[in-house]
């Protein structure tokens, strides 16, 4: 069945495989009664269950929570946080500030744009090593087929200050022996000893940790959506509590112009070149 007949089947109703609510009665999520199954749950439990359909252990949930906590920097210079802060200085609303900043966290060089690639890499590498490939082969194949290795290297600085405290937390929670975790660190050591000057970054490290929890790349991407959120609200508040327009004011001469010299708008637009 296709075309209008196919679409007609869905007119006027939601066919939901994930749940919903019956007004005044109850709400379900992936087959569970939300208020029963998650009566004493923390929000991370519900969030991850909604993505993966699995209930994780308390230790796993704590680690997922920590991963977010350790990257919640209230630094308004960071590009995504800057969106939240600029919304504060322009006296926009807090939700628009956070939503805009979260959307701007899906970047190509950090955050959302890297999650899928980093998890895909470490899971592919894990399979390759399990089938006998060496770390060197895995690294060389990745560098040959792509420009870099997702999850290794960092845009502003090569050292990632989040890793030491997170590794400590991983140790304390007992997740050190995870196969993806171990492999990610082995690759880091190999790259460090070689000439690549690439070190594992936060995304690479956390991609390995969640891979050990059975997350798919898409699971990790969706979970990672709010990784930076903890730092965004303070950035908005810092700006909204100061004078309006006073955050990152840019004087005219701070636009370094390198375009066309001054010219006059034509009185009649030129005809198309291909017709002349």
């Amino acid at each position: 069945m296709r075309g209008p007949d196919f679409l007609d089947q869905s007119v006027g109703k939601l066919k939901s495989a994930v749940g919903g609510f019956v007004p005044g009665s109850h709400a379900t999520t992936r087959g569970c009664d939300l208020h029963e199954a998650f009566r004493d749950a923390v929000w991370m439990d519900v969030f991850v269950y909604g993505i993966t359909g699995r209930r994780l252990t308390e230790a796993q949930l704590r680690l997922l929570d920590t991963i977010w906590a350790y990257t919640s920097y209230p630094d308004s210079r960071l590009w995504n946080n800057r969106v939240a802060a600029l919304a504060g200085t322009t006296r926009s609303t807090g939700v628009l500030a956070m939503a805009g900043a979260l959307a701007a966290s899906e970047a190509a060089i950090f955050g959302g744009g890297v999650y899928t690639a980093a998890a895909t890499f470490i899971q592919r590498a894990h399979k390759a090593v399990a089938h006998g490939a060496s770390i060197e082969q895995v690294v060389r194949q990745e560098l040959d087929s792509r420009r870099g290795i997702a999850g290794y290297g960092r845009p502003l600085t090569s050292k990632d200050e989040r890793l030491a405290p997170l590794r400590d937390k991983v140790r304390r929670l007992g997740f050190e022996d995870g196969a993806h975790h171990q492999l990610a660190l082995e690759i880091d050591r190999y790259l460090d000893e070689g000439r690549w000057r690439l070190r594992i970054n936060y995304v690479g490290y956390t991609a390995a940790l969640v891979s050990d929890m059975g997350f798919s790349p898409r699971d990790y991407y969706l979970y990672g959506f709010s990784a930076f959120m903890g730092g965004m609200a303070p950035c908005y508040l810092d700006a909204v509590e100061k004078a309006e327009g006073a955050l990152f004011p840019i004087p005219c001469e701070h636009i370094y112009y390198f375009g066309q010299p001054p010219r006059t708008w034509p009185t009649g637009l030129p005809n198309d070149k291909r017709q002349e």
Partner: peptide, 21 residues
């Protein structure tokens, strides 16, 4: 504004799934 009816493709259950804890 339309709100639409809902048709559950998974049967809602009220049994609490045992957590691996």
């Amino acid at each position: 504004f339309p709100f639409y009816e809902i048709e559950f493709e998974t049967k809602p259950v009220s049994v609490i799934e045992e957590q691996p804890r």
